Simulated scan of single mutants.
Amino acid sequence: MKIQLKLEYAAFLIVGILAFAKTEYSWWWFALLFLAPDISMLGYTVNNKVGAFFYNLLHHFGVAIIVYLAGVALSLPYLQMIGAILFSHSAFDRILGYGLKYPDSFQNTHLGKIGKVK
């Protein structure tokens, strides 16, 4: 099942890259902003609950799709770009095993525990 999930997320990553290709933006934007959603981890400096909320907000496929579709509907290419990057980044994180976070700990994700086992 683990390999099947990684293949599914790899397909999602390809979809995100194709969505970005439909925008008018140069690929250097993609490279520059690909890791930007990880800024949401700064929420963990407040506490786990705030950190999980902001992390999940910027790593949720549904949010990425809504942002992208809003860009399409409103003819705002920058929203399409942001949505495509959010989607691609989230898929890449899932390939690496980083899932959406539970509010008790950064290591506790919907894909299981991450990090070193104590």
Rank of each mutant, 00 (worst) to 15 (best):
K49E: 14
G99V: 00
S26M: 00
A73R: 04
P103H: 12
A64S: 11
G112M: 02
L76K: 15
R94P: 12
M81P: 01
V50L: 13
V15D: 03
D104P: 03
Q107F: 09
W27F: 14
L76C: 09
S90C: 14
F87S: 08
I65Y: 09
Y55R: 09
V72Q: 07
Y78V: 08
D93P: 08
Q107W: 05
A70P: 06
A19I: 02
Y78W: 12
F61N: 06
R94G: 07
P37G: 10
L42D: 03
I114D: 05
Q107D: 11
L96G: 02
I82K: 01
L111S: 04
K101M: 04
F106L: 09
G97V: 05
H60K: 00
A31Q: 06
F20Q: 02
N48T: 12
Q4L: 13
Y25W: 13
G99D: 07
N56D: 14
A36R: 03
V72R: 10
A21H: 11
F54P: 00
V67E: 09
L57R: 08
K113H: 14
Y44L: 06
A52H: 09
E8P: 00
K49G: 00
D93T: 12
L96K: 15
N56C: 03
F54C: 02
V63Q: 03
D104F: 01
N108G: 00
A52Y: 10
S75F: 13
I66F: 14
P103K: 04
L74T: 11
A73D: 07
F34N: 05
I17D: 07
A64E: 06
I82Q: 00
I85F: 10
V67G: 08
S105Y: 13
E8R: 06
L18R: 06
N56Q: 08
G112D: 09
I114K: 07
D93A: 12
L58D: 00
P37W: 10
L32C: 10
F87G: 01
L18S: 01
L79C: 08
P37Y: 07
V72K: 12
F53M: 08
L5R: 14
W27Y: 13
L100M: 10
A31Y: 03
N56K: 06
Y98N: 09
H59A: 04
N48P: 09
L33Y: 15
G62W: 03
P77E: 11
T45K: 15
V15Y: 07
A31M: 12
N56T: 03
L76A: 12
A52F: 11
Y98W: 13
Y98R: 07
G83Q: 06
A21M: 02
F20C: 03
L42P: 05
G115E: 01
S90F: 01
D93G: 07
Q4I: 10
F53D: 05
H59D: 05
L74M: 14
L5V: 06
I39S: 08
F12W: 13
Y9W: 13
L79T: 08
S40C: 06
V46N: 10
S105F: 14
V72G: 02
Y25E: 05
L13N: 09
M41G: 10
L111G: 08
L35R: 02
L100P: 04
G16W: 08
L58P: 00
W29S: 01
V15L: 15
L69M: 12
K113C: 01
A21L: 01
T45P: 00
K118F: 05
Y9A: 06
L7H: 01
W29R: 00
H59I: 02
F54L: 13
W27S: 02
H59W: 10
A36E: 04
N47Q: 04
T45L: 15
S26N: 15
G43M: 10
